[in-house]
Nucleic acid binder design. Sequence first.
DNA 1: ATGGCAGAAGCATTCTGA
Length: 268
Amino acid sequence: MSINIASWNINSIRARETSLQKWIVESNPDIIGLQETKVIDDQFPVEFFYDNGFDVRFFGQKSYNGVCLAFKRSSLIKCEQVVRNIPIWEDEQARVITCCLMINDHHRINFISVYVPNGSSLEDPKFKYKLLFLQKLTGYVKKLLRENDSLCMMGDFNIAPTDLDVFDPDLWREKILCSSIERQQFSKFEELFLTDSFRLKNKKPNQYSWWDYRQGSFRKNEGLRIDHILLSKPLVSVCSDVGISTDVRKHEKPSDHAPVWVNLDFNI
DNA sequence: ATGGCAGAAGCATTCTGA
């Protein structure tokens, strides 16, 4: 069986329902991680997901942040556990949700949807929070991997891993999203054998997942690749294809991010 | 030094994002 997994910073789920529906119909994902839902849990559009054939688990807050994981309502996918936030660490911001999904009664996989803080600039106090967040996240996934070596962490990491992921590396040199210190933190995931799935299959330049709303950035393809799907070893071995749904950025009233996706092909 | 989009909150304008 083949499953399609997609991650998208939607920049407000309530403002994006038309674009979300169009994308779901066109790309038919099985498992979806969204970030920046920007809605409190009481107002989360559960019915929208139900009407489109999905079950959903969410973790939001007022105005900012917010994440969710949606999965096709099917006998093939069962949600066994949900964890909101990074356990023990009392973060006030809603940026992480984990679902342990059992697929086809055979594959138990931890899925994480994460919205890493932007950090603003290297001098800003928010940058310290970004680094702390990344350290806590690393510790958390390390613990999860000890319990279950099947893990898929997807989301807006707000880090462009290499200069190949930046439209103008000199302009962005040691700037927020591209600094060495952030890239070092990103490599900590790779040390845990979590792989940037996109680069398994696509080594080309000019592959981006975010473009600024201003200055006609999308038209000029002046973007950054900051949204990622990280796969642990057992999932890397079944990853058959990857991509970025750039067309979604062309929608009317688009998010400034495009969805990123992977296909996993299991024998059973 | 830079904030020209866009969304939320809430009703004019500020905060935040990347």
